[in-house]
Write a protein that binds this DNA or RNA. Sequence first.
DNA 1: GGGTATTTGTCCGTATGTATG
DNA 2: TCATACATACGGACAAATACC
Lengths: 484, 484
Amino acid sequence: MLHLTARQGIPLYQQIYEQLRQGILDGALPEGSCLTSTRRLAAELQVGRNTVENAYAQLAIEGYVTPVPGSGFVINKVQYDIHPHAPDTRQQTTPLLTPADTPGECRYDFHYGNMEAALFPYRAWRRVSATVFADPDARDANPDAMHAYEDVKGSPALRREIMRYLYKSRGVRCTTEQVVICSGIQGGLSLLTRMIYPEHQRVAMEEPGYAGARVVFQRAGIQICPIPVQEDGMDTAALSASPARVAHIAPSHQFPTGAIMPIRKRKDILLWARECDGLIIEDDFNSEFRYNGKPIPSLQSIDADGRTIYMGTFSKALSPGLRVGYMVLPHRLLTAFDDAHAGFQCTVPLFDQMILARFMADGHWERHIRRMCQINKKKHDTLMQAIAARFGNRVRVHGCNAGVHVLLEFTCGEKEADLIRQAAEHGVKVYPASSGWLDRRGYADNCLLLGYGMVPECDIADAVELLHRAWFVQGGGSVVPGSE
Amino acid sequence: MLHLTARQGIPLYQQIYEQLRQGILDGALPEGSCLTSTRRLAAELQVGRNTVENAYAQLAIEGYVTPVPGSGFVINKVQYDIHPHAPDTRQQTTPLLTPADTPGECRYDFHYGNMEAALFPYRAWRRVSATVFADPDARDANPDAMHAYEDVKGSPALRREIMRYLYKSRGVRCTTEQVVICSGIQGGLSLLTRMIYPEHQRVAMEEPGYAGARVVFQRAGIQICPIPVQEDGMDTAALSASPARVAHIAPSHQFPTGAIMPIRKRKDILLWARECDGLIIEDDFNSEFRYNGKPIPSLQSIDADGRTIYMGTFSKALSPGLRVGYMVLPHRLLTAFDDAHAGFQCTVPLFDQMILARFMADGHWERHIRRMCQINKKKHDTLMQAIAARFGNRVRVHGCNAGVHVLLEFTCGEKEADLIRQAAEHGVKVYPASSGWLDRRGYADNCLLLGYGMVPECDIADAVELLHRAWFVQGGGSVVPGSE
DNA sequence: GGGTATTTGTCCGTATGTATG
DNA sequence: TCATACATACGGACAAATACC
């Protein structure tokens, strides 16, 4: 923006000229683009058009810009004299979307959380979007709702859809009043902290557990009580012994171990909550994908006492790019929520809420879930087979009954950092498990996380083969061209 | 979700039958809809298909459901025996989109913040959306970026576009590193509190000011130091006298008074910040709309000392349904931001960021701004004219040079609550100014807020006429049918 | 708008364990 | 002890309805 100071001796046109010239030299006004038209700039600055024309003429004479009749003043190439504070907007040729890591460096990426871009339901999403953003007169329902500040809890339409879905798929029983839309799991936890703090100054968390959840509590000033995780989930005895009266638990697929909590233990947890007048945060972040064994009811669905906060997200099954999650509050927390969030707005754009609501109402969501579950099961089977064939008993695989990642435990003294480095040298990205531990001394430093959401099924065997070479073949040097 | 307990004497098909029957009686399974197909339920429960068929056949025999070949088992109408805990999902006939207040009750709504639904650029948004969600192979750039967890600060592409726009329109100078995408102004302030607290335990705010900003600080445990607002913005003397070293200021259009801070005062504020080693939060929430007078440079653009945090939003000019804002951090806060947000994710869905980035890159944003500015100026002029004609000197109008709302001050002893009630009785919604005051004792209770973003220009004269009748015509009873 | 792929209920045969004669 | 009947559970083949392109 240009700023003109009146009554200071310097003529207006010269001020305009000077600032534009500076902008061109800075590179802030990229070459090839046009100056604002004289009419528009004159209107913006509230000066006469001739004043602007004067300035532009000066710039044209000096070769900074070239007037093109009927088009505008195009900015010419000049030697940049980079101003330290000026934004450098010249790299206009860079693609609009940020490129991921350059290919060749990394051939296969076992990121957990991300997913294959090709699996997103583009067509359905486009169609639903087009409907939601149809011209207002052509729309069936009231369009105002989309352009208004609304309920802190989120769009009622979406909340109703979520309620229905959760009842069908997870047995969660609730009314729309209990459903809150939030920015993913972190957003939900963040809202929660506002409600339980400072009454609750401690929260019990699985150790190892999900670091993304831990930071939210830590940031809110809540103390973490780490509770060991066994093969079947959180150690209930240790939980009872801890001073915390709020527990964050992922019973359907614990992160990172993948432990699934059996029904008996779930009941123990509920009993614990009742006895200490506590709360349970049930983090069901990817309950959608279960491969072996019968489904186990969610904690919320067997909680007769209303002490469970159920949380879920669309990020895992649909896309991490859609940062939308939800939370089902027990009745006892409803007023606390209202109190804590009076005057606040829902952080999730209504646009996305509208699209999602219709996406679900049209049945796309359940269809997509099924499709993804099938695909992930195939991937899962392929991965397990490849691991068994290649790695044999040099690794133990944890958490292979659900979710989209497994935890590899190395039994022959390999170290996490070495494994990651060796894999990277062979063009495969694998991820450390260490971030899961609050106290790293409790970690033997011999585990890795392999998420298979992002790797196409056809590549999995190949990727495992590469890992095999990287880790277990003597002198299995780098095979990736260019990273030698 | 159904839950089956094995080896308990009760046959599987009977457990399924029983639970479904209960669901139908509860009303949790709405009549007219279909049961999950036998195959799918069998797969879900990990039982044979005939087991499910058996259960369904039983339900069919007893009349709860009717099998429709090729379609499914539709649920029949039964006498409900409502279970207290079951969600009642029966009202499936309600429209997907929530209806706003029933028309007839409210004819004109002077809400500030919301906007006319018809003015949203549907066509351009649809087009850009379709491009962003094009099938991945048809896309020009890397689609993975859309489906990944990414930078906490938001999409680099969008940040670059915002940087360019702010430089051109507001003179804000920054690099993309300084730009942070956030969930509207509240989201930005919320991020900020994490960085400045507990070093700063106080923040100076305009009195009256924007309640939506105040609650964020209060919630974070930060104490508000109210600073009186004069005709030309915050009282700098009072600011200097306050113990706060962080000030939240809306210099381009103060809320609710609409005061515009002159350049001299802006420099005073910057001086204050330098002298007390403080920070300025420049809330430019609707800088886009300015009608009279020359543009004044933003605080950020004349801050040589790097003490200004610049904040803006897309909610006002584009739609409140798009909860996206941005924040430009000074260099001195960059590391503090990184420290405070390690492990956190950006709360704004990448989808919207991608769409917005392309929307801006294609020039739609600036085009839209211009269009809206013209429309709002017309509305503004019409409103001012109508107010002058109808209300004369019974009201004083504040903040009529910018933004999309004005503050009406009543000079003849009218009271806020009465005015709102009287207006509502005539079918016009107007809004209290009282929420702007932290200390309501400082408020004479004689003001109203009129936002004209939501009222079509052609309705403004009519609406003001109605207000005139409501407030100033003796016996000007209700004229709205049905609200008598 | 018409052809195709998928999904649906339906019907079929089979295997297993248990009770009955 | 053996044969039979019954209840329970499982998977495949078929035709119709539906969804998708």
